[in-house]
Simulated assay, not measured.
Amino acid sequence: MKVEARIFEVIALFFFVVGVVYTIATFYYRTGVEWAGATAMFFSGGLALLAGTYFRFVARRVEIRPEDFDDAEIEDGAGELGFFSPHSYWPILIAGAAALFAIGFASANWWFAVGVVPIIVACVAGLVFEYHVGPEKH
């Protein structure tokens, strides 16, 4: 996980540096700062930093993986990778609810978009707690 953390941290640093350069450049070469691009640069850096921080946090709690070694071979990563739910319908429901939210938001139907938020939260809760309730409970 340290490799992934480094990648996202470098991407975040790139976006922050380019955001500062972009903001200064648009300030001096236009009549003022071009806020849409500057905001996009800094938000992109923030999102990359968020992902990098998550990977750095997780890297402390998992054992060292073959990807963390410079001299690792492909065979070092063989074996079981994890548990993946074979029959979950929750991701489809989350995607459908998110699409409904996007339609409501894009068409300025705020009552519709706000009304779909509890459905999204319920679907995410269903996904998170799928194996903690019902017949699949261990």
Rank of each mutant, 00 (worst) to 15 (best):
P66E: 03
W90D: 03
A95W: 05
L50C: 08
G82L: 04
L93H: 12
L127S: 09
G126P: 03
P135I: 10
P86H: 11
V33K: 12
G45S: 06
I94N: 07
L100D: 06
L127Q: 11
A106W: 13
G46K: 07
P66N: 00
F112V: 14
G52R: 07
S107E: 13
A113D: 03
C123T: 14
V21G: 07
V33Y: 11
H87W: 00
V62T: 14
F101V: 06
V33W: 11
A25E: 02
V116K: 04
A102N: 07
A48Q: 05
A108E: 12
A36Q: 04
I92K: 14
Y89C: 00
L47E: 01
W90L: 04
T31N: 15
T23E: 07
I103K: 10
T23P: 02
A122C: 06
L81E: 12
I120N: 06
A113Q: 05
S85F: 09
G19K: 07
I119K: 01
V124Y: 05
I92N: 14
F42L: 10
S107W: 10
L49E: 09
A98G: 05
V116Q: 04
V21E: 06
L81I: 09
L93D: 04
V114A: 15
G115I: 08
D76Q: 04
H132A: 04
A48I: 01
L49N: 08
A97H: 00
V117L: 15
A36F: 07
V18D: 03
F27E: 07
L93A: 12
S107D: 09
V20F: 01
A122W: 13
W35T: 14
G126D: 05
F101S: 04
P66I: 05
A106E: 10
F43D: 08
A97G: 00
F112R: 10
M41I: 01
D70W: 08
F112S: 11
G45N: 03
Y28M: 13
M41G: 00
F57K: 11
Y89R: 15
S44I: 00
E67A: 03
D71P: 01
H132W: 07
W111P: 03
F112Q: 13
F27G: 11
N109P: 00
G45T: 03
